[in-house]
Amino acid sequence: MKKFVYVVTDRNRTSLHVGMSSDLIKTLDFYKQMPCLLFDSGQQLTRLVYFEELKTEAQALSRFKLISRFTRTQKERLVRSCNPDWIDLTIGLDFEHITTNKKMVNQVNLSFSILS
C-alpha cells in the first residue's frame, strides 16, 4: 500500500506542516473542511506544496521523521527543489483522481455492455 509524506502550508506560507497519509486526497479534504478553531482563515493549512510517494509504511515513517526535524529553511529548500513557485499541487492530484475514476467507470461500463 502506498504512503505519502507531504508538506502543507497556508496562503501566506506562515506555517509549514509535515504529515504522513495513505490517502492524500482524503487528508487534504480534511484540512480544507477543518473548522477554523485553531487558525484564522489566512492560516488554514490548505495548500499542498510538496509530497513524496513511498512504497512501505516503514519508509514513509522514516522519511516523515527526518523531514519533521528539518528547520524551516531546510523545509523551504525541499519545497523549492521541486516546486519553486509554491504552486498548490492539490489541483493536479484532483485532476489525476478524477481522470483515474472516469477511466475505471468507463472500463466497468464497457465490461458491463460486453457481458449484456
Rank of each mutant, 00 (worst) to 15 (best):
V108D: 02
Y6F: 13
A60Q: 00
K32Q: 09
V5C: 11
R63Y: 02
K102F: 12
D10S: 08
L38A: 06
V7I: 15
S68T: 13
S111Q: 13
H97F: 06
T90E: 05
T90Q: 10
L28D: 01
R11A: 00
N12A: 05
T9E: 07
K75I: 14
F39R: 15
Q43L: 07
N101I: 11
N109K: 15
Q33Y: 00
R77G: 09
I114F: 09
C82G: 11
L115V: 11
Q43D: 10
G19M: 09
P35G: 00
S113T: 14
L28K: 01
F30E: 08
L78V: 09
I98Q: 02
L78G: 08
T100K: 10
Q59S: 12
M104N: 12
K102N: 04
L110H: 14
F4D: 01
F64C: 02
D29Y: 08
L78M: 08
V108R: 15
L48I: 10
Y31T: 01
K65D: 12
F95D: 06
F70S: 12
T27M: 13
V18F: 04
S116Q: 13
C82K: 15
L37S: 04
K75W: 06
S22V: 12
A60V: 03
I25F: 07
K65H: 14
Q107S: 15
R13L: 05
Y50I: 06
T56F: 08
Y50C: 03
S116M: 03
T73Q: 10
N101T: 13
E96T: 12
D94R: 15
L54K: 02
L24R: 05
R13H: 12
I114V: 14
D23K: 10
I87T: 14
T9W: 09
G42H: 08
A60E: 00
Q44S: 03
W86K: 09
F70K: 07
K103Q: 11
F64G: 00
Q107R: 15
L38P: 00
Q44W: 00
R77A: 11
M20P: 00
R13F: 09
R63P: 02
G19D: 05
V18M: 03
V105M: 08
V79H: 11
V5W: 00
I114N: 05
Q74V: 02
V8N: 06
S15D: 06
F112N: 15
R47Q: 13
C36Q: 07
R72N: 05
I114R: 15
L38F: 09
Y6Q: 06
L93Q: 02
V18S: 09
V108N: 07
I67N: 02
Q107P: 01
E96H: 11
E53F: 01
L24Y: 04
N83M: 12
L61Q: 10
I87D: 09
F64M: 01
G92M: 04
P35S: 00
E53N: 05
I87R: 15
E52W: 03
E96Q: 12
T71H: 06
G19K: 07
T100Q: 05
L93Y: 02
R47D: 06
R77F: 07
E96G: 02
M34Y: 07
F39W: 10
R11H: 02
T71V: 05
G92P: 00
T56R: 10
K2Q: 15
L66I: 06
Q59W: 03
W86M: 08
I91G: 04
L48V: 11
K102Q: 13
W86Y: 14
G42T: 03
V105E: 09
T56N: 10
C36E: 10
R13V: 02
S62F: 03
F4Q: 03
N109F: 09
N101E: 15
D88K: 06
